[in-house]
Structure formats: structure tokens, C-alpha cells
């Protein structure tokens, strides 16, 4: 009986030894999760750059349409683009930022996305 027990214990111990490396192999998954978390913590900015051709009234209209901003806020951003050369219109997750940039390009504005520093 005790021999059989010892045999099982040995087998169990062997299983533990065999299983241990598998546990270490799963470690990179945790690193990946950390990277995703980091991406969420570091949002992307949607930036519109100055362009001497696009009309100020047109740019204001585009900001209202794309972001749903009220006229005052849209004008504030438009003037920021005009005076400072660029304005951050929106910050958040990358997919949505890309979608906004695509819409802005559809209206022919000079727009880019960049990671927040």
C-alpha cells in the first residue's frame, strides 16, 4: 500500500516537474496584457494642421459635423489651427481616432493621429 502511495507520489511529483515549464511559458501573455493596458492609458490625439487654402468657415463646419461640436467650440479649434498651426480635436482610443482622421480626410483637411507623450 505504502509502495503504491509512493509510486503515485513519484508520478505526481513527475507531473509537477513536467507541468512547471508550461506555467513559465504562459508568462508572455501577461506581458501582452500589460502592453494593451499601456495602449489604453496612452490615448491617441486627432490633430488638424493649418492649411492656407481651406476656408475658415468650411473648417468650422467640418468640425461641427465630424465631432458634433457646438459652433463656439468648433470656431475655437479652427482659430487654434489658424493661429498656432495645429489643434488637438479629440483624444482617445486608436480605432476611433483613425476613424475621425479618415472622416477629416474625406473633407480634405490636413489631419493626423499621434500618440500622446
Amino acid at each position: 500500500m505504502s509502495q503504491l502511495l509512493r509510486k503515485h507520489e513519484a508520478k505526481f511529483a513527475a507531473t509537477l516537474v513536467i507541468d512547471f515549464p508550461r506555467a513559465t511559458l504562459e508568462a508572455p501573455t501577461i506581458e501582452k496584457e500589460e502592453a494593451t493596458k499601456q495602449e489604453i492609458e496612452m490615448p491617441w490625439n486627432v490633430i488638424v494642421h493649418n492649411d492656407p487654402v481651406n476656408l475658415m468657415s468650411y473648417v468650422t463646419m467640418v468640425f461641427q459635423r465630424v465631432f458634433g461640436y457646438p459652433r463656439e467650440r468648433a470656431e475655437k479649434h479652427m482659430l487654434e489651427v489658424h493661429n498656432n498651426g495645429r489643434s488637438i480635436l479629440w483624444s482617445g482610443v486608436r480605432e476611433r481616432a483613425e476613424l475621425y482622421v479618415q472622416q477629416l480626410h474625406g473633407y480634405l483637411l490636413l489631419a493626423t493621429i499621434e500618440k500622446t507623450v
Binding site: 483613425e98 482622421v101 479618415q102 480626410h105 480634405l108 490636413l110 489631419a111 493621429i113 499621434e114
Partner: peptide
């Protein structure tokens, strides 16, 4: 200009 880059 019409098809400008979306990022750096």
C-alpha cells in the same frame, strides 16, 4: 495634398 498621410 489630396491624399495626405494620416500620421508621421
Amino acid at each position: 495634398r489630396l491624399f495626405s498621410a494620416p500620421a508621421a
